[in-house]
Design a protein around this nucleic acid. Structure first.
Length: 462
RNA sequence: GCUCCCUUCGUCUAGAGGCCUAGGACACGGCCCUCUCAAGGCUGUAACACGAGUUCGAAUCUCGUAGGGAGCGCCA
């Protein structure tokens, strides 16, 4: 059995959950569930500009919709409360004081404009754009001078100019970074709020997180966070960086690839279980190929099979899981999902002919609306059957009603047609399409009156 | 520019020196079933980025090349 894992998902409430984030959340959740550990939800809302309360509520709702739940979080509390970083200032203040006492951080009075310029200059000179160290060795007098001018400092971590940071990434293996490649980074912003490098790492450590699962884009950030943790003598969690989720063209998943957020897929009618089944196999291989019910996922999750290569998200693959999921739903569930008042017989009728709720629209038209004009091929089939066929069909309908078995039997006897020659013109006259659900229930729903009208139309017009 | 990461069928992946004439799933094609579609059964097409090296033997190890990506933010 996997050792007890405490994992977390730490989104910032700045919009709907991105598919890539949903995936790392799912994997983290699975790891905790599989090992019997805990899954923590923490809200990283230190960016006051972009964080919004409504996003936070939406986020929780989306996660629940997907089928995830957590053991500690802003809505249910827990031993490490509070779970929103905007409410954890007390802890951070204490830790900043410790860092200051150790002399591993220093106030930086550079303005964003100055920093921007410095970076540009370095770039032009063909050098990596790193903090130049301007404020690293300011005298007390110089600091006072800055303060006197009303400048509020940010707090920077003084990265040693020599040395290495090493860690074992549980998906990439051993990693080593030179400190000389890392510039002094900000741990506290000018407005007093905590920066990502600081609070993200610190909270993981303090909350007892043992396995941090995140996107590849954080791999080179990890040494910075490790330096903060080491300076504070806080325990290092294990880190694992999974390959990013990319679009069909291999570029990072973005708007131009279509839907990218959980919310968008939900609104289009994709099912949570379908999304989960797809995500489960993106950058990860479980020990089964087939569809899994949400409750079955943890048992089949294999953390050692998390992938390092970027995984392409293709909607056609999601469609497969959507069909699988649909196939396992009850008629009542399908009906609710379709969200139309056509009733159970209709849900039963179209369940194998729809992927998304909007696919049901043409069948609603078939049952209670007008048929679209026929295409070239369709007209040929109608013509081949001839007006007599439809006259006979109308007559048979009058005798058999919407009992399609009787109707086709009568029609077969009277026209000598059978098989496709019999059914195709019927289907076409009734639905206007060559494909679709079974004819018998279809006829029942269409009703004798409409069916008669459609037969008569072709009796006169073909 | 510097540092780091990645590269097996169209897609997701299995593969940790011989078990690989590279396996599975999805997608696609064919056949069967069937009024059609779907489902189901059978079946087919299809990949180790490239080049050196190590080795009796490399998809697997090493180096290089190419391509893709990330970080170098008072975003997370």
């Amino acid at each position: 059995m996997t050792p007890l894992a405490v994992t977390r998902f730490a989104p910032s409430p700045t919009g709907s959950v991105h598919l890539g984030n949903a995936r790392t959340a799912f994997f983290s959740y699975l790891w905790a569930r599989k090992s019997g550990g805990r899954f923590i939800l923490r809200i990283e809302d230190t960016d006051v500009e972009r964080s919004e309360l409504r996003f936070r509520d939406e986020l929780l709702a989306e996660l629940h919709w997907l089928g995830l739940d957590w053991d500690e979080g802003p809505d249910i509390g827990g031993p490490s409360a509070p779970y929103a970083q905007s409410e954890r200032h007390g802890l951070y203040a204490e830790l900043y004081a410790r860092l200051e006492a150790q002399g591993v951080v220093y106030p930086c009075y550079c303005t964003p404009e100055e920093l921007d310029l410095s970076r540009k200059l370095q770039r032009m000179a063909g050098r990596p754009p790193r903090y130049a160290g301007t404020c690293r060795s300011l005298s007390l007098a110089e600091r006072h001078a800055h303060e006197a001018r009303g400048r509020r400092p940010s707090l920077r971590f003084a990265v040693p100019c020599a040395g290495e940071v090493e860690f074992i990434d549980f998906v990439h293996g051993a990693q080593r970074f030179h400190m000389s490649d890392i510039g002094d980074f900000i741990v506290r912003r000018e407005d007093g709020t905590a920066s990502f490098f600081f609070c993200n790492a610190v909270d993981d450590a303090v909350m007892g997180v043992t396995h941090v699962l995140r996107g590849d884009d954080h791999l080179t950030n990890t040494p910075r966070q490790l330096m903060v943790l080491d300076a504070l003598k806080l325990p290092r969690p294990g880190y694992g960086h999974v390959g990013l989720l990319v679009g069909a063209d291999g570029a990072p998943l973005s708007k131009r690839h279509g839907s990218t957020s959980v919310q968008e897929f939900r609104q289009r009618g994709f099912l949570g279980a379908a999304l989960l089944n797809h995500l489960f196999r993106l950058g990860h291989t479980g020990d089964v190929d087939g569809w899994l019910a949400p409750a079955e996922f943890p048992a089949h999750f294999r953390p050692e099979h998390l992938g390092k290569a970027p995984a392409r998200f293709e909607e056609s693959q999601l469609v497969h899981w959507q069909k699988e999921t649909l196939g396992r739903m009850s008629v009542a569930e399908i009906g609710a999902w379709l969200d139309i008042e056509a009733g159970a017989p209709f849900a039963e009728l179209v369940r194998h002919n729809v992927v998304l709720p909007r696919d049901a629209a043409p069948w609603i038209a078939v049952i209670k609306g007008e048929l679209p004009p026929l295409g070239e091929d369709e007209r040929r089939i109608i013509a081949a059957a001839g007006p007599g066929f439809f006259t006979a069909a109308a007559a048979a309908l009058d005798e058999a009603g919407t009992d399609s078995k009787r109707l086709t039997k009568l029609l077969a006897e009277r026209t000598g047609r059978k098989g496709a020659d019999l059914y195709m013109p019927l289907r076409l006259a009734l639905t206007g399409q060559t494909h679709g659900p079974e004819l018998a229930p279809l006829l029942k729903l269409i009703g004798a009156e409409t069916a008669r009208r459609r037969f008569e139309f072709h009796a006169q017009n073909s």
